[in-house]
Amino acid sequence: MNIPNILTLIRIIFIPLLVIAFYLPPSWSYPSAALLFGAAAVTDWFDGYLARRWNQSTPFGAFLDPVADKLIVAVALALLIERYDSIWMTLPALVIIGREIVISALREWMAELGKRANVAVSQIGKLKTALQMISIFLLLGVSPGSMIGMLGQLMLYAAALLTLWSMIQYLRAAWPELVRDI
Protein backbone atom coordinates (compact mmCIF):
# COMPACT_ATOMS: atom_id res chain seq x y z
CA MET A 1 0.00 0.00 0.00
CA ASN A 2 1.51 3.32 -1.06
CA ILE A 3 0.50 6.97 -0.55
CA PRO A 4 -1.31 7.35 -3.91
CA ASN A 5 -3.42 4.26 -3.14
CA ILE A 6 -4.15 5.54 0.37
CA LEU A 7 -5.34 8.84 -1.12
CA THR A 8 -7.66 6.92 -3.45
CA LEU A 9 -9.07 4.97 -0.50
CA ILE A 10 -9.61 8.23 1.39
CA ARG A 11 -11.62 9.48 -1.59
CA ILE A 12 -13.87 6.43 -1.30
CA ILE A 13 -14.28 7.00 2.45
CA PHE A 14 -15.37 10.56 1.65
CA ILE A 15 -18.42 9.28 -0.28
CA PRO A 16 -20.60 8.34 2.72
CA LEU A 17 -19.27 11.39 4.58
CA LEU A 18 -20.38 13.57 1.66
CA VAL A 19 -23.88 12.09 1.83
CA ILE A 20 -24.06 12.67 5.59
CA ALA A 21 -22.78 16.24 5.22
CA PHE A 22 -25.31 16.93 2.46
CA TYR A 23 -28.20 16.16 4.83
CA LEU A 24 -26.98 18.33 7.68
CA PRO A 25 -28.84 21.61 8.29
CA PRO A 26 -28.09 24.04 5.42
CA SER A 27 -25.77 26.24 7.47
CA TRP A 28 -23.52 23.18 7.87
CA SER A 29 -24.48 21.26 4.77
CA TYR A 30 -23.30 23.64 2.08
CA PRO A 31 -19.77 24.31 3.33
CA SER A 32 -19.10 20.80 4.67
CA ALA A 33 -20.33 18.98 1.55
CA ALA A 34 -18.39 21.35 -0.70
CA LEU A 35 -15.22 20.99 1.37
CA LEU A 36 -15.44 17.18 1.37
CA PHE A 37 -15.97 17.11 -2.38
CA GLY A 38 -13.19 19.66 -2.91
CA ALA A 39 -10.81 17.58 -0.80
CA ALA A 40 -11.73 14.51 -2.84
CA ALA A 41 -11.07 16.40 -6.09
CA VAL A 42 -7.65 17.49 -4.79
CA THR A 43 -6.77 13.91 -3.78
CA ASP A 44 -7.79 12.77 -7.27
CA TRP A 45 -5.22 15.06 -8.83
CA PHE A 46 -2.63 14.51 -6.13
CA ASP A 47 -2.71 10.70 -6.10
CA GLY A 48 -2.14 10.57 -9.86
CA TYR A 49 0.65 13.11 -9.64
CA LEU A 50 2.41 11.21 -6.84
CA ALA A 51 1.98 7.83 -8.51
CA ARG A 52 3.66 9.16 -11.67
CA ARG A 53 6.32 11.24 -9.89
CA TRP A 54 7.33 8.50 -7.46
CA ASN A 55 6.80 5.71 -10.00
CA GLN A 56 4.27 4.08 -7.67
CA SER A 57 1.58 3.09 -10.14
CA THR A 58 0.04 -0.24 -9.16
CA PRO A 59 -2.63 -2.47 -10.70
CA PHE A 60 -4.74 -1.82 -7.58
CA GLY A 61 -4.44 1.93 -8.03
CA ALA A 62 -5.06 1.74 -11.78
CA PHE A 63 -8.30 -0.11 -11.06
CA LEU A 64 -9.49 1.80 -8.00
CA ASP A 65 -8.66 5.39 -8.97
CA PRO A 66 -11.17 5.71 -11.84
CA VAL A 67 -13.79 3.82 -9.80
CA ALA A 68 -13.38 6.25 -6.89
CA ASP A 69 -13.60 9.23 -9.26
CA LYS A 70 -16.76 8.03 -10.93
CA LEU A 71 -18.43 7.04 -7.66
CA ILE A 72 -17.93 10.36 -5.90
CA VAL A 73 -18.98 12.36 -8.97
CA ALA A 74 -22.10 10.21 -9.50
CA VAL A 75 -23.09 10.45 -5.83
CA ALA A 76 -22.53 14.23 -5.78
CA LEU A 77 -24.55 14.68 -8.97
CA ALA A 78 -27.37 12.53 -7.58
CA LEU A 79 -27.44 14.69 -4.45
CA LEU A 80 -27.53 17.84 -6.56
CA ILE A 81 -30.41 16.45 -8.64
CA GLU A 82 -32.34 16.14 -5.39
CA ARG A 83 -31.35 19.60 -4.12
CA TYR A 84 -32.21 21.43 -7.33
CA ASP A 85 -35.26 19.28 -8.19
CA SER A 86 -35.18 20.62 -11.75
CA ILE A 87 -34.79 19.26 -15.24
CA TRP A 88 -32.06 21.89 -15.70
CA MET A 89 -29.89 20.10 -13.15
CA THR A 90 -31.06 16.60 -13.99
CA LEU A 91 -30.18 16.75 -17.71
CA PRO A 92 -26.48 17.62 -17.47
CA ALA A 93 -26.06 15.35 -14.44
CA LEU A 94 -27.52 12.35 -16.27
CA VAL A 95 -25.49 13.11 -19.40
CA ILE A 96 -22.31 13.06 -17.31
CA ILE A 97 -23.26 9.90 -15.40
CA GLY A 98 -24.41 8.14 -18.58
CA ARG A 99 -21.22 9.00 -20.43
CA GLU A 100 -19.10 7.65 -17.60
CA ILE A 101 -20.92 4.32 -17.79
CA VAL A 102 -20.56 4.12 -21.58
CA ILE A 103 -16.88 5.06 -21.62
CA SER A 104 -16.03 2.74 -18.73
CA ALA A 105 -17.62 -0.15 -20.59
CA LEU A 106 -15.91 0.89 -23.83
CA ARG A 107 -12.49 1.08 -22.15
CA GLU A 108 -12.95 -2.31 -20.52
CA TRP A 109 -13.98 -3.88 -23.82
CA MET A 110 -11.12 -2.23 -25.73
CA ALA A 111 -8.68 -3.44 -23.05
CA GLU A 112 -9.90 -7.00 -23.64
CA LEU A 113 -8.99 -6.51 -27.30
CA GLY A 114 -5.58 -5.13 -26.34
CA LYS A 115 -6.48 -1.72 -27.72
CA ARG A 116 -6.96 0.30 -24.54
CA ALA A 117 -4.63 3.02 -25.88
CA ASN A 118 -7.24 3.80 -28.58
CA VAL A 119 -9.51 5.20 -25.85
CA ALA A 120 -6.94 6.74 -23.51
CA VAL A 121 -7.82 9.92 -21.60
CA SER A 122 -7.68 12.98 -23.85
CA GLN A 123 -7.07 16.66 -23.14
CA ILE A 124 -10.79 17.29 -23.63
CA GLY A 125 -11.49 14.64 -21.00
CA LYS A 126 -9.13 16.37 -18.59
CA LEU A 127 -10.76 19.77 -19.21
CA LYS A 128 -14.18 18.16 -18.76
CA THR A 129 -13.11 16.69 -15.45
CA ALA A 130 -11.76 20.01 -14.20
CA LEU A 131 -14.96 21.88 -15.14
CA GLN A 132 -17.09 19.13 -13.65
CA MET A 133 -15.20 19.10 -10.35
CA ILE A 134 -15.27 22.90 -9.99
CA SER A 135 -18.95 23.11 -10.89
CA ILE A 136 -19.94 20.37 -8.43
CA PHE A 137 -17.86 22.03 -5.71
CA LEU A 138 -19.64 25.35 -6.35
CA LEU A 139 -23.10 23.75 -6.55
CA LEU A 140 -22.63 21.84 -3.31
CA GLY A 141 -21.36 24.95 -1.54
CA VAL A 142 -24.26 27.32 -2.17
CA SER A 143 -28.02 27.36 -2.13
CA PRO A 144 -29.90 27.03 -5.43
CA GLY A 145 -30.57 30.34 -7.16
CA SER A 146 -27.47 32.14 -5.91
CA MET A 147 -25.11 33.80 -8.40
CA ILE A 148 -22.38 31.27 -7.59
CA GLY A 149 -24.93 28.48 -8.05
CA MET A 150 -25.83 29.84 -11.48
CA LEU A 151 -22.13 29.95 -12.38
CA GLY A 152 -21.83 26.35 -11.17
CA GLN A 153 -24.77 25.33 -13.35
CA LEU A 154 -23.25 27.04 -16.41
CA MET A 155 -20.00 25.23 -15.74
CA LEU A 156 -21.88 21.94 -15.35
CA TYR A 157 -23.50 22.51 -18.76
CA ALA A 158 -20.07 23.23 -20.25
CA ALA A 159 -18.79 20.01 -18.66
CA ALA A 160 -21.79 18.10 -20.06
CA LEU A 161 -21.07 19.44 -23.57
CA LEU A 162 -17.42 18.45 -23.26
CA THR A 163 -18.62 15.09 -21.95
CA LEU A 164 -20.62 14.49 -25.11
CA TRP A 165 -17.80 15.72 -27.32
CA SER A 166 -15.23 13.47 -25.65
CA MET A 167 -17.62 10.51 -25.76
CA ILE A 168 -18.03 11.00 -29.51
CA GLN A 169 -14.25 11.10 -29.90
CA TYR A 170 -13.83 7.88 -27.91
CA LEU A 171 -16.58 6.15 -29.87
CA ARG A 172 -15.06 7.28 -33.18
CA ALA A 173 -11.68 5.88 -32.10
CA ALA A 174 -13.28 2.56 -31.19
CA TRP A 175 -15.75 2.45 -34.09
CA PRO A 176 -13.70 0.14 -36.36
CA GLU A 177 -13.63 -2.44 -33.57
CA LEU A 178 -17.29 -1.92 -32.68
CA VAL A 179 -18.51 -2.65 -36.21
CA ARG A 180 -15.89 -5.22 -37.19
CA ASP A 181 -18.20 -8.28 -37.26
CA ILE A 182 -21.53 -6.64 -38.07
Rank of each mutant, 00 (worst) to 15 (best):
A158L: 14
T8M: 02
P25N: 09
L156W: 10
F37L: 13
R172V: 09
S135K: 04
S135P: 01
R107N: 01
I182L: 14
I87P: 12
G149C: 10
A62V: 02
G38L: 14
A34G: 08
V119D: 01
T8P: 07
G125I: 09
V121Y: 09
V121Q: 02
L17M: 11
G98P: 03
F14L: 14
V73R: 11
W88E: 13
T129C: 02
A158T: 01
A40G: 09
A33R: 08
L151I: 14
T43G: 04
P59I: 04
I124W: 00
I96L: 13
R11W: 03
L9E: 08
G38C: 11
L17W: 09
L161C: 06
E108H: 08
K126G: 08
K115M: 02
L127A: 13
A173M: 07
A105P: 04
L71M: 13
G125L: 11
S135E: 05
Q169F: 06
M1A: 11
A160Q: 13
I10K: 05
D69L: 02
S86C: 05
A39V: 15
N5S: 10
W165P: 02
S29T: 04
L140R: 07
W45P: 00
E108S: 10
R172Q: 14
G152Y: 05
L151E: 02
A39G: 15
L36V: 07
L77K: 11
W175P: 00
D69C: 10
L91N: 12
L140P: 04
D181F: 08
A68F: 03
A21H: 10
G61Q: 04
L35A: 12
A74R: 06
I103T: 14
A93D: 09
L131K: 08
V102R: 04
G149H: 11
P92F: 00
F63A: 02
P66V: 03
L162S: 13
L140T: 08
E112D: 13
G98L: 07
L36S: 01
A39T: 14
K128R: 14
Q132V: 14
T129R: 03
K70T: 05
M150N: 08
